[in-house]
């Protein structure tokens, strides 16, 4: 499943995308993210996967600065931490 967490408003599209078919539920993204955006929990089909916390999804662009600005300041990002390449950003 390709899960898009976030929203689009007048100013742009802000989605963090988790491909749960690729995700192995290891949780490396949970510790890598400086803003603690992710958690690991079972989805509705019983698979343990990474997901964006519900409290974050509705204000994701204010919690996560976006992939490029974040990667400029942080050594390990959610993208690089994920060995399965399951995480991507739209901004």
């Amino acid at each position: 499943m390709e899960a898009n967490y976030g929203y689009s408003d007048g100013s742009g599209d802000y989605f963090i995308i988790v491909d749960t078919d690729k995700c192995n539920g290891c949780g490396d993204c949970v510790t890598a993210c400086p803003e603690r955006v992710f958690e690991v929990a079972p989805d509705d089909y019983g698979k343990k996967v990474a997901l964006v916390k519900e409290s974050v999804a509705s204000k994701v662009s204010y919690v996560c600065p976006g992939y490029k600005p974040c990667s400029a300041n942080v050594e390990t990002t959610c993208h690089t931490a994920c060995k399965m390449g399951a995480i991507s950003h739209t901004w």
């Binding site: 390709e2 898009n4 929203y7 689009s8």
Partner: peptide
């Protein structure tokens, strides 16, 4: 089963 989804509940 869901293969892809997107939800907008912020705006």
């Amino acid at each position: 089963q869901v293969t892809k989804f997107i939800m907008n509940d912020k705006c």
